[in-house]
């Protein structure tokens, strides 16, 4: 079965962000396919490479990025949500003349059309709320 996963919750603030990762891992473990993971609203904070949690806690951002790279799964962070919340790749940081970018490797910033496309091309859309 083809799944698309949507994440609205920020890491640490919302359990949904971590539950979504556990769900995504299970989807792969059970032999299903992930069309795309779309991070929207506060979910885009997951893509912040500057997150530095205490050493005895999971680095949720790092875990998501690594999951995307290991399984070659698209992790898309909505551009409108990202810009509002200060999640920038090199291109956007330069466009808005910000002093640094902070998008974690494994994530891509793209438009809301990717959410709709993910929805249309999956058998199931599973949303993890804030």
């Amino acid at each position: 079965m083809k799944f698309s996963i949507v994440v609205y919750g920020a890491p640490y603030s919302s359990e949904g962000c971590l539950s979504a990762l556990k769900f995504a891992e299970s989807v792969i473990t059970n032999g299903h396919e992930i069309v795309r993971v779309f991070f929207y609203q506060d979910g885009v904070y997951t893509a912040n490479v500057l997150i530095a949690p205490p050493q005895d806690e999971i680095d949720i951002s790092q875990a998501w990025g690594q999951f995307g790279i290991d399984h070659d799964i698209e992790l898309i962070a909505c551009i409108a949500s990202c810009l509002r919340r200060g999640i920038l790749d090199e291109t956007e940081a330069s466009r808005y003349e910000k002093r640094s970018d902070n998008l974690r490797a494994g994530f891509t910033i793209s438009g809301l059309g990717q959410l709709i496309d993910a929805s249309l091309n999956a058998d199931r859309v599973v949303t993890f709320g804030a």
Binding site: G111, L112, G113, L115, I116, S119
Partner: peptide, 8 residues
């Protein structure tokens, strides 16, 4: 998201 969805 709704407006984007309506385009597709």
């Amino acid at each position: 998201a709704l407006l984007m969805g309506s385009a597709f």
